[in-house]
């Protein structure tokens, strides 16, 4: 998978994240959007050729992006979304390590670091939201 395809995936996640947790949506609607985006990610990953756990990574990234627009309990869900991403990466990498691939340790440390630091945010201003998104995109592209 080329870096361009990786970046396109990131854009796709960003796009889908826009539709999560809309204020007026009911539970059914939210669930349908989540499942729909996951299917989209699976289709994209299949097209790109990496079906190990790329769709779940995209999904976790989209969830992280989406938490920046929540109204209630934003800090808590921000932290939980990053933990979710960390969980997917950790066990996915362990599984791949046992099959002979390299263990992406730096990526894990970066996400863990971001998760830890984000607990210290008091006010999440618009600038801080943007900053967080930039960090996540950086982790995605570079690690």
């Amino acid at each position: 998978m080329t870096p361009l395809q990786n970046a396109l995936g990131c854009l796709l996640a960003l796009g889908c994240a826009y539709f999560f947790w809309k204020p007026k949506a009911r539970l059914v609607g939210n669930a349908a959007i989540l499942v729909g985006s996951l299917s989209l990610f699976v289709a994209y990953a299949f097209a790109v050729g990496d079906t190990e756990f790329y769709p779940f990574r995209l999904f976790a990234l989209a969830l992280c992006f989406s938490t920046t627009s929540l109204q209630k309990d934003r800090r808590r869900f921000l932290f939980l979304a990053q933990i979710f991403w960390l969980w997917i990466e950790l066990f996915g990498n362990i599984s791949l390590y046992y099959r002979g691939y390299e263990f992406a340790g730096t990526r894990l440390v970066a996400i863990a670091g971001l998760a830890l630091c984000s607990t210290f945010l008091s006010r999440i201003s618009k600038e801080m939201e943007f900053c967080l998104m930039v960090f996540w995109i950086a982790v995605w592209i570079f690690f």
């Binding site: 079906t51 190990e52 756990f53 769709p55 779940f56 997917i88 066990f91 996915g92 599984s95």
Partner: peptide, 8 residues
Amino acid sequence: WQGAFFPV
């Protein structure tokens, strides 16, 4: 049984 998506 292969697939790094198995945990989730």
